[in-house]
Measured scan of single mutants.
Amino acid sequence: TLFEALYDYEARTEDDLSFHKGEKFQILNSSEGDWWEVRSLTTGETGYIPSPYLAPV
């Protein structure tokens, strides 16, 4: 399942991933609570992002 960003987000740590509203992601790991490890389909980068900022496509 692909997810889309509902809002912009600016990374706060080196493990976070900055992204823009509308960017699409592949979920790599969603078992860590509200922070999911994802791969951006736009940039190819991986990192953690807050799951409340995402919605299924």
Rank of each mutant, 00 (worst) to 15 (best):
F25Q: 00
A5L: 09
L41W: 06
D15R: 15
Y53C: 12
T42N: 10
E23Y: 05
E10Y: 10
L28F: 03
W36E: 01
G47S: 03
Y48E: 01
D16E: 15
K21R: 10
P56N: 05
E23C: 06
R39Y: 10
L28N: 01
A55Q: 12
P50Q: 11
D8F: 04
F3N: 00
A11E: 02
G44I: 01
V57C: 08
P52D: 15
A11V: 02
S30Y: 12
D15T: 14
K24T: 09
V38W: 01
D15M: 14
E32L: 14
L54T: 04
A11F: 03
A11D: 02
E37Y: 15
A11W: 03
I27Y: 08
F19H: 01
E14R: 10
K24N: 05
D15S: 14
Y53V: 06
N29I: 05
H20P: 04
T43D: 02
G44H: 06
G22K: 03
S30G: 09
L28G: 01
Y53H: 06
L2Y: 10
D34I: 14
L54P: 02
D15I: 12
R12G: 09
G33I: 10
S18Q: 05
D16C: 14
K24G: 02
D8G: 06
L2G: 01
T1L: 13
Y53W: 10
E32K: 14
D15G: 15
L2N: 04
Y48K: 13
G44V: 01
N29M: 07
Y9R: 06
E14G: 13
D34W: 14
G33H: 11
A11I: 02
L6H: 04
E32P: 09
I49C: 06
A11S: 13
S40V: 06
S30C: 13
E23A: 06
L2S: 05
T1F: 12
P56C: 07
L28K: 02
E37R: 12
S31C: 12
A11Y: 04
S31T: 12
F3I: 03
G47K: 03
G47Q: 03
L17I: 12
T13A: 12
H20C: 11
H20Q: 12
T13F: 15
T13R: 14
I49E: 00
E10Q: 13
R12Q: 14
L54E: 02
P50K: 12
V38P: 00
A55G: 10
A55T: 13
T42Y: 09
F3L: 05
T13S: 13
S51Q: 07
Y7W: 13
E4I: 15
G44S: 05
N29S: 11
Y48C: 09
G22T: 02
L54S: 04
T43G: 02
L28C: 05
P52E: 15
T43F: 02
E32Q: 14
A55I: 13
G33R: 12
Y9A: 02
V57F: 08
F3V: 07
Q26C: 11
G47T: 03
P52Q: 15
I49M: 04
F3C: 06
S51E: 04
L28A: 01
G33L: 10
R12V: 13
L41K: 03
L6C: 07
T46E: 09
W35P: 11
W36Y: 07
S18K: 05
S18V: 04
V38C: 09
Y48Q: 06
E37D: 02
E14D: 13
P52L: 15
A55D: 05
E4Y: 15
E37L: 15
T13I: 06
Y48S: 05
E14I: 10
A11C: 06
F3M: 08
D16T: 15
K24Y: 12
E32D: 14
Y53G: 05
R39G: 01
L17R: 03
R39W: 06
K24E: 04
Y7Q: 09
D16V: 15
A11Q: 06
L6W: 05
Y9Q: 03
S51P: 09
T46L: 07
E32V: 11
S51W: 15
W36V: 07
E32C: 13
G44E: 04
E4D: 02
S40N: 13
D16W: 11
E45Y: 10
L41S: 03
P52M: 15
E4F: 14
W35K: 10
E37S: 08
Q26T: 10
E32I: 12
A55H: 10
L28T: 04
S18T: 09
I49R: 00
A55R: 12
T13M: 11
S40Q: 07
P50N: 09
E4P: 00
Q26H: 10
T46M: 08
A11G: 12
D15C: 15
P52V: 15
S30E: 08
P50D: 04
L28Y: 03
P52T: 15
T13D: 10
I27W: 06
L6P: 03
L2V: 13
F19Y: 06
D15E: 12
L6A: 04
V38M: 05
Y48G: 02
A55C: 07
V38Q: 01
E37G: 04
Y53F: 11
G47L: 05
K24D: 01
L17S: 02
S18A: 07
K21F: 05
G33P: 14
L6G: 03
E23K: 00
Y53T: 04
V57Y: 08
E37A: 08
R12H: 10
S51M: 09
Y53N: 05
G47M: 07
R12I: 11
L17K: 04
T13W: 14
T13Y: 15
Y53S: 07
K24C: 07
L2P: 04
P50T: 05
S30H: 09
L54G: 03
G44Q: 06
A5K: 00
D8T: 08
Y53L: 11
S51D: 02
G22P: 00
K21L: 05
Y7N: 07
W36H: 01
G44Y: 06
T46I: 13
T13E: 09
G22L: 02
L6N: 04
D15A: 13
F19N: 00
N29A: 08
T42F: 10
T43V: 01
S51V: 10
S30V: 12
T42A: 12
E23W: 08
L6K: 08
L6M: 09
H20S: 13
E37K: 13
F3P: 00
D8M: 03
F19I: 08
S31F: 09
K24R: 14
S31I: 10
T42K: 13
H20N: 10
I27C: 05
L54D: 02
P52S: 15
Q26L: 14
F3Y: 14
G33Q: 11
S31V: 10
W36C: 03
P56A: 09
G44K: 05
S18W: 05
Y9S: 03
E14V: 11
A5Y: 01
R12T: 13
P52A: 15
E14S: 13
P50G: 05
D8H: 06
D8V: 02
R12P: 11
H20I: 11
T42I: 09
R12F: 09
N29W: 07
Q26M: 14
Y53D: 02
E45G: 08
D15P: 05
E14A: 13
L28I: 12
W35H: 08
G22A: 03
A5Q: 01
P56S: 07
K21A: 10
S51I: 07
G44T: 02
R39L: 11
E4N: 03
W35C: 10
E32F: 13
L6Y: 04
S30D: 13
G33M: 10
A5H: 00
W36I: 06
E45D: 09
E45C: 13
Y48F: 13
A5C: 04
V57L: 11
S30T: 11
L54W: 04
L41F: 07
S31G: 11
L2W: 09
E37P: 02
S31H: 09
N29C: 08
K21V: 08
S18M: 04
Y53R: 02
F3W: 15
Q26N: 06
N29E: 06
F25L: 04
D34M: 13
L6R: 07
L41T: 07
P52R: 15
W36L: 06
Y7F: 13
S40R: 14
Y7A: 10
H20W: 09
T42C: 11
H20L: 11
W35A: 06
S30W: 13
